[in-house]
């Protein structure tokens, strides 16, 4: 869908103090121009960016979220938090996709404090990208309340995601390749689906049911999920006694 020409995106940016924020400063000092979409939140380290920050920004209708850290290997801090930012963004992108937000709306970049020009380039490029996607929901073809419901379900699960990440998604090699390799391993997708996406889907189904009784088909349509998938989750949820099937099994509701 083409964005209206007067669309002025808002991008929430989390910038680490030591590199990217410095790069943004230098960009200013050097008077490199970029579009006025970014709203900056300064953090000490990109590793401080919580999954919840990202979900919250989108739930509040940010058109894009930007995370800027030090180049890998250059983190100001000993624990190299930028690797965690990398891991987090890879997880967040998958979750965003699942709840219907185009993952391209989240961008992670490394910008050093000396790369003023690069900061402008990144902002110009990302700004144009978001501009072309249009307001949140438009390129996705989704209603904002639907997206918000999904993001709410994801936010609820953040504590769980953190535990899963720690227990099961520990990346063995602290290198950029190591991270990408880990997240593209053949056994990663099924594991991620089982541990994260399934839980998220359940959360979303429950969220939809809290809004009122509905049929499996309707839920699937609303959440843009596969009907069989929804039925499978409903079955599991009913076994756990958290939803009840009404009569013909066509209607389900949250168990009282």
């Amino acid at each position: 869908m083409a964005a209206p020409s007067d669309f002025k995106p808002i991008i929430v940016g989390f910038l680490c103090n030591w590199c990217c924020y410095g790069g943004a400063d230098l960009c200013g000092v050097s008077r490199f121009q970029y579009p006025p979409y970014l709203r900056v939140i300064r953090l000490m380290c990109s590793g401080r960016v919580d999954l919840e920050f990202i979900f919250r920004a989108f739930a509040k209708k940010a058109d894009g979220v930007f995370i800027g850290g030090c180049h890998l290997g250059d983190c100001h801090y000993n624990p190299e938090g930028n690797y965690d930012a990398l891991g987090n963004s890879l997880v967040a992108k998958r979750i965003l996709e699942n709840v219907g937000v185009n993952p391209d709306r989240l961008r992670l970049e490394w910008v050093s404090a000396g790369e003023g020009i690069r900061f402008a380039e990144v902002m110009n490029e990302f700004g144009a990208k978001i501009k072309s996607l249009g307001p949140l929901g438009s390129s996705e073809g989704r209603e904002i309340p639907d997206l918000q419901a999904g993001l709410e379900a994801a936010t609820q699960l953040v504590p769980y995601f953190k535990l899963v990440e720690r227990e099961r998604f520990r990346v063995p090699k602290r290198t950029e390749d190591g991270y990408h390799e880990f997240f593209s391993r053949p056994d990663f997708e099924p594991l991620f689906k089982e541990l994260v996406i399934d839980k998220l889907t359940m959360g979303r189904v429950m969220g939809a049911l809290r809004a009122g009784e509905s049929s499996a088909g309707d839920i699937a349509k609303k959440l843009r999920l596969d009907a069989a998938e929804v039925a499978r989750h409903l079955h599991l949820l009913s076994q756990q006694g958290v939803v009840r099937m009404n009569g013909s099994e066509a209607q389900v509701a949250v168990a009282a």
């Binding site: 000490m44 380290c45 965690d84 504590p159 720690r166």
Partner: peptide, 14 residues
């Protein structure tokens, strides 16, 4: 503590 806040982002219970 150096104040990077990495732990804050990892803590499941806040």
């Amino acid at each position: 503590c150096k104040g990077d806040g990495l732990c804050n982002a990892k803590c499941p219970t806040g």
